[in-house]
């Protein structure tokens, strides 16, 4: 398929960025994919897309990242893009408690549309604004632990932990994938789900994401 033209990666992982409007999803993405930060990036409309290839051990991984709009009205559209995602960053703004308080709702929506085995990281963004912090680190960490999520605090502005956050998620996905590959022999489609998801991505109709070459 289309990916055959490029030989420089072994995996494509689809990762979605979710969370309330204005928490910094777009800047996390631009920091990770282009090492850029815009003080006033424009609001994301619907879903926007970016990509970056990273090397983990011997594997080259193309992270295909879907940046979704946080606005409630768009969810009918954006939730369609959770399908096939193997990783998610659930982002909140640690200076606005309200954006953290709704994390549970986001999580539910994610699990409603994505596979249950999706790797999820809770991300408290804007750690550069310590004096305005409204969400204590420990509280968020507890929430993450109780829900089986990875957790990090980041700053897209000063770059703290941004690279690490994506790397951790991708590494976790890779680990799961490798295990799965050992157990389920020689299937081309990488999914973290069970039989249901496996059927969805039969060899004939692979998605652009999640394809091993």
């Amino acid at each position: 398929m289309g990916n055959r033209a490029e030989e420089d990666y072994n995996f494509v992982f689809k990762v979605v960025l979710i969370g309330e409007s204005g928490v910094g999803k777009t800047n996390l993405l631009s920091r990770f994919t282009r090492n850029e930060f815009k003080q006033d990036s424009r609001t994301t409309i619907g879903v926007e897309f970016s990509t970056r290839t990273v090397t983990l051990g011997t594997a080259a991984i193309k992270a295909q990242i879907w940046d979704t709009a946080g606005l409630e009205r768009y969810r009918a559209i954006t939730s369609a893009y959770y399908r096939g995602a193997v990783g998610a960053l659930l982002v909140f703004d640690l200076t606005k408690h309200q954006t953290y308080a709704v994390a549970e709702r986001w999580l539910k929506e994610l699990y409603d549309h994505a596979e249950a085995t999706i790797v999820v990281m809770l991300v408290g963004n804007k750690s550069d604004l310590q004096q305005a912090r409204e969400v204590p680190t420990e509280e968020a960490r507890m929430f993450a632990e109780n829900n089986g999520l990875l957790f990090l605090e980041t700053s897209a502005l000063d770059s703290t932990n941004v690279e690490l956050a994506f790397q951790m998620v991708l590494k976790e996905i890779l680990t799961k994938v490798s295990k799965q590959r050992q157990s389920s022999s020689r299937t081309n489609a990488i999914t973290l789900g069970g039989a249901q998801a496996g059927q969805e991505q039969g060899p004939g109709e692979k998605r652009a994401c999640c394809i091993s070459l």
Partner: peptide, 21 residues
């Protein structure tokens, strides 16, 4: 179709913002 690009993936914004973006 060949590369599995859906129109909604790019044209949503074209409609929602009347091409202003």
């Amino acid at each position: 179709r060949r590369y599995e690009v859906e129109y909604l993936q790019f044209a949503f914004r074209w409609m929602n913002n009347l091409l202003m973006r």
